[in-house]
Design a protein around this nucleic acid. Sequence first.
RNA 1: GGGCGGUUAGCUCAGCUGGUUCAGAGCACCUGCCUUACAAGCAGGGGGUCACUGGUUCGAAUCCAGUACCGCCCACCA
Length: 882
Amino acid sequence: MKELAAKYSASQVEDKWYAYWLEHKFFHSEPNEKEPYTIVIPPPNVTGILHMGHVLNNTLNDVLIRKARMDGKNACWVPGTDHASIATESKVVARLKEQGIRKEDIGREEFLRHAWEWKEEHGGIILQQLRKLGCSCDWDRTRFTMEPALSDAVINTFVYFYKKGWIYKGVRMVNWDPEALTAVSDDEVIHKDTKSHLYHLRYYISDGNGQPTDKYLTIATTRPETIMADTAICVNPADERHHWLRGKKVLIPLIHREIPVIEDEYVEMDFGTGCLKVTPAHDLHDYEIGMRHNLPVIEIIDDHGRLNHEACILVGEDRFVARKKIVKMLQEAGNLEKTEDYNSPVGYSERTNAVIEPKLSAQWFLKMESLAGTALETVESGRTRFIPEKYVNTYRHWMENARDWCISRQLWWGQRIPAWYLPDGSFVVEATAEAALKAAQAICPDIKAEDLRQDEDVLDTWFSSWLWPISVFDPDMPGHPEHQPNKDLAYYYPTNDLVTGPDIIFFWVARMIMAGEEFMGREPFSNVYFTGIVRDKLGRKMSKTLGNSPDPLDLINTYGADAVRIGMLLCSSAGNDIFYDEAQIKQGAAFCNKIWNSYRLIKGFQLADIPQTQAQKLAIEWFRAKLSETIGQVEDHYSKFRISDALMAIYKLFWDDYCSWYLEAIKPAFGQPIDANTQAATLEFFEALLRLIHPVMPFITEELWQDIAPRKEGETILFAPSPKATAFDPAILEDFTLAMEAVNGVRGIRSQRNIGPKEALGLHIRAASFPCIPLIEKMAGVTVQLSAAPADGNGIGFMVRTTEMSVPLEGLVNPEEELAKAQKELEYQQKFLQTTRAKLSNERFVSNAPAAVIENERKKEADSLSKIESLEAKIKQLKESK
RNA sequence: GGGCGGUUAGCUCAGCUGGUUCAGAGCACCUGCCUUACAAGCAGGGGGUCACUGGUUCGAAUCCAGUACCGCCCACCA
């Protein structure tokens, strides 16, 4: 780097250094004698592309991992992708559909071939994009949740829990997604308040021969299309209004099927009419009532959400179309009493946004009780810490109410359930077909391989992701309690920090804790940092359909990865949602440029054998202390995961303290050389600043670090130690602050009076001594005159704490103005003194407040008195000179 | 319906277990500067009844209670 351009150009720099880092395998980690620091990536969908949420999450991960690396830890960040069964399968289905192919027609094998093809084509793009962001993942360790070893781990886990008795198959009411044609877990259902209607329907009492009498009861329902599946009407036994119905039978409207009236306390008396139609096949609560009363179950809605032949009428119609039609039919038949507008929560599929249909089906479940109890304890005990802490409450609530986990999905893309059915319908669960055959033969000796049929379902994706912190290191571990962790797992587990969104606290975080406790006997990570959700300026969630999400790669190309990282972090205070605004990325780019230009300045210094000035000496002493102070603050922020605060502290240190104050103080006049000591200190500080900010801005810091001193091939800032705070005298900082205030006072006068920064001025300080005078002279462009006597009336005065200062400005001073200013200030001080004294004369204050607080009040009183005294003197002087 | 969190400057947020001259930061805004590191810059400046109402206290942005909004999570009263 010879000539430095006036503007920093990120694109030229970033690719170069990323290639350099890869070439030297700086990100690769192997177990060694050092302390490990481990992060596993929240695996993105294998066919996904980078969005702003990923940028935020992975920037945070990278900051943490780079910081740990510079702190001397053996840092390992394991990357990888998730097979995301529903999301991926629906993409593949969509693509095949474009070619006119239906998955049912080509069969499982062929479909999976297409799916793998798709994965090879589109998979892992996102991992390439993470490189652009600067992520320092150990790419040699890249994993995929459906790679053979990890799939084996999933299967072994299933067999393990089955044999433990925690996995069972049962017919249950599940959340059926009629579009994806699969069951989904409770957590994948989103309830939204939805406008609908409450239909009041008359059911006529049967005369005993299936003929209607003129008596009727009225029920209220939101789903009139399900009446054909009714198998009872239910009332509360305590509801006297309905006692006349005891033992009666009623007729379902339109189809006139006879059903009994039953009593159950589940029914709310004051909701609707107090009569509930019971539809066990299509409603969870009704199903439970049906179980209690031995009601038959009649299913009238098929997998696609259409009425089937059991419905007798409207067969083949979609459920929502059927609803409209049946309302009309009911009205015509005289069964519709009235229709009310009604808002009720309706479940939607998280994936397809289809209205979930409660459906009875045979599914596989994992018992949660014991797993959840242990996992709750992990967090309650603090072995895993949540940041922000508020999520512990949410977590507890869920863990205490966890229902058994429906782990089967009616899909093909995923790990197929290792259950094999015998011809008689019984089944065996084994990890392989061979083992299954053996087990089957133990039951039925002459059974052959071709007699066995493997379960068609695959496992929920989270049933593989929950093993991630274990399986990425040692896939043989889950499901094998007798297995000894391999070298990697023993070294890297438990991981240190996990950064993820709060939306998957139950899907993923909780379950990883369960798996960790179950298979490793301890927590999978020490800290979980929950980021906010990235929203646009208007607070809307970023989404493809809204088109309000920028492409991170465009941003990186325009502003550079460092700028994008800064931009994301600047607006991401912990625990809050992120309001993304491109202006913040511009701010990041401006900061890069600032760093770049400060380097241009110091690189251009010409060395000469000249003495160091007093101002330079003072500035160096001060900045050394300031640097240490800030490092302490930054470390504290990091320890609390306050990454944006850490960044802001460094930002201000670099920009305000180093550039605006330090460099301006030590900068020689234009064209003049600098002495060796000052230059050395300046470079030393700059290098420390680079190391301090490197975790956040990896590229520009490497670029400048490589240039600031001669480096050998293979050297890198990545492993340079984080700067350490050293002991310093706080008085140095205090003195400098006073000097700054004096400088600001002069600058204020310059600005008000339109006096250019170069025009030489005097500064009268009414004191025997004052700190950092050479600095004040240099920074304010003044010549200081110390004197115990007050300044004459031809100056503009200001106060620094209790010290009176004045800039002599013959002819420019308006005594009237000065007088008015002084009088106003005097008034303020007198009032201030009054309140201070009121406090001090309050006996209860004096007797109750801690000594330090009282001491401070006394100091306030003394300071105020001293100011009043000098103001009064000044006013007197101004009046006399009139 | 239950639970959790929030309300501080135009915007996004700090302000921990009450007490520094406590009302802050960044951005935005206004004024003046193209002063050879940087106009992606420099210097200066304005701006808030800390949601509301009470209470506790010598003292409240901070603690307590209630009210009003806002957000999130859990929950299928048909």
